[in-house]
Structures are given as C-alpha cells and as structure tokens.
Write a protein that binds this DNA or RNA. Structure first.
Lengths: 151, 151
DNA sequence: TATTGTTATACTCTATAACTATA
DNA sequence: TATAGTTATAGAGTATAACAATA
C-alpha cells in the first residue's frame, strides 16, 4: 500500500481523537449502549428511566417541570408519559388548583419497576466506574458537570 | 409549597446528576451545541466536518472505510458524501483496481473550506479547554478515550 | 459467496408552530 | 395575554434489509 493513497481499511484518526468533541461523543455512545443493554430486558429506554427516577424523587411534578428539568422539549414529554402510563407505571393526575396541569405520580407497580431498573442501573454505574477506576470516575463526573454549563 | 408534593418548577435531580450516564449526556449536548454554533455560519454539520477531516488525513479512503472508522453505518455515509460532493468539496473516484469502491478525495475548494472549518473548530476546542482548565481537559480526554472502549 | 455503494423502510429524536383549555 | 398539554410536521440520526455491480 502506498503511504500517500489510503488503500487500507484502518484510517488515521489521530487528529479527531485528540479533540474533546470527538472523544465525548464516542464515550457517550459507549455508555449509552451499556445502559441500553442493562434495560432492554425490561423494555425501558434511558429517557423513560430518567423520567421514572425524577418522578420518584419529585412526586407530583408536572410534565412541563419534568421536561424543563430533563432538558427535553415539552412536546417530546407527551409520548414518553403516554407509554409509561399505558404500561401502568405512572398516573397523570389533573391538578385541582390548575386544571391545565397534569401531575405525574408513580403507581405501586411503577415503584416496583423502578426498583428493578435501579438494580440494573447501579450495576451499569459500577461497571463504568470500575472500568475506568473510581478515582477517574470522580474526576470525570466533576469535569463533565462543569462542562455541561458551557454557554 | 408542600415538602412532599412537587408544586415548584425546580426539581431535585441530585440522583441522576450523580451518575456518569446523565452527566456525560448533558456535557455532550453542551459541547455539540458549541460545535454547531461554530459551524452554522458555514452550514456544515459535525459529521460533515469529521468526514472532511478524516479524508484530509486519509486521502482516497473508501466510503466503507470512512463509515467504519467514524462509527456510522454504511448507508448513512451515502447522503453525507452526496451533500459534500454536491457542494464541490469532495470527489468520488471509482477505484480502477476494485470498481465497486469509490475513493473520496478533497477538492482544492474542499481544502480551503476545511481550512476555514479548522479555524472555527480550534476556537471551539480552545473555548472548551479554557472553560474547564487545561489540566482538567487533559484528564477528561484521557478518561473519555478509555471509556469509549467499554464493551 | 462476499463486499461496496446504494435504495428503501421504519423508528427515534429534535425543533417548531399552532391548537385547546384553562388561567 | 400567557401557560400546560397536546397535535402536527419536518428534519436529522439510527438501524436493517435487500439489491446491483463487482470481486
């Protein structure tokens, strides 16, 4: 193979690999794949899990508050809650003080489902942390949290 | 407001925020938004930039090799190269030794475009690195690169 | 048989605009 | 008028299957 013409399969990506943007995208895909693997037996997506977890910690949160907190658009919340409600894990409750608003609550089945999901998710989290080492994991979380505030 | 019912807008997401999965997703969105902002004047997406950069470093790489290296599906590569070719920044050249294969080359206009993009991208990279600090940036890149290898 | 580029399909996500019902 | 939930739509990304040309 010639050194100037690229005839081989393996490409030189050393420039892209030296950038934060490429590295974070690649790592995010790997982590996301691991989460999917942890949840797919229970047929739950990462977004559904984040809603269940947020509702568990904030019972009665409105759809708008959940959307704003989780960083998804309000319209996107509708089918997500629809599927969770169809599955019987959350309930929409019309707020008597503001009948435009639906407050979201976990059902007892939802609590049981979340317990199962938490077991899988904690396994995933331990897998990630032991893969990179606990000290790196703590650094990573701290730097990522700062980076998320980039304007 | 009651302490048990969630009537306010700001939710407690302390659990999700303590996880690598949530933090990396949030940070990736912030970085991606910054890259988009850097490129949108030139009407180029992050994927288009990654292809141009990979072709610059690997002239004559095939579509299949680019797809494999950049971690996108082969069919996804077709419209990406289509738009870059329609724009006149890359050329598809049928390989005379294997006429199934199209080797991708930057045009001279493509080289000029990539030069402009590199200026913007380097500004973005400096912005990210100075936002978190150069020492954190080096740690971050190293940990993310390791994490991307998670099975 | 296997592979490259391609087409087609379906599903998800993202982003907007606009509607309804309420306030 | 403004907001919550919803509907609708369009664009982008992801994942597969399959086909034609070629190996």
């Amino acid at each position: 193979m010639s050194p100037t013409r690229q005839l081989q399969n393996k490409l030189d990506l050393s420039y892209l690999e030296s950038t934060i943007g490429y590295a974070i995208k690649r790592a995010q895909i790997a982590v996301s794949r691991d989460i999917h693997g942890a949840f797919d037996e229970l047929q739950v997506t990462a977004v559904q899990f984040s809603v269940l977890s947020a509702v568990a910690d904030n019972p009665g949160a409105s759809q708008a508050a959940l959307a704003a907190a989780l960083g998804v658009e309000r319209p996107r919340m509708v089918p997500v809650i629809d599927s969770l409600e169809a599955r019987g894990v959350v309930r929409r409750v019309v707020d008597p003080d503001d009948r435009r608003s639906r407050r979201i609550h976990l059902t007892s089945e939802g609590k049981a489902t979340l317990d199962q999901l938490m077991i899988r998710f904690e396994e995933h989290e331990r897998r990630v942390r032991s893969f990179i080492g606990e000290s790196s994991a703590r650094s990573l979380l701290s730097i990522l949290t700062a980076l998320a505030e980039l304007d």
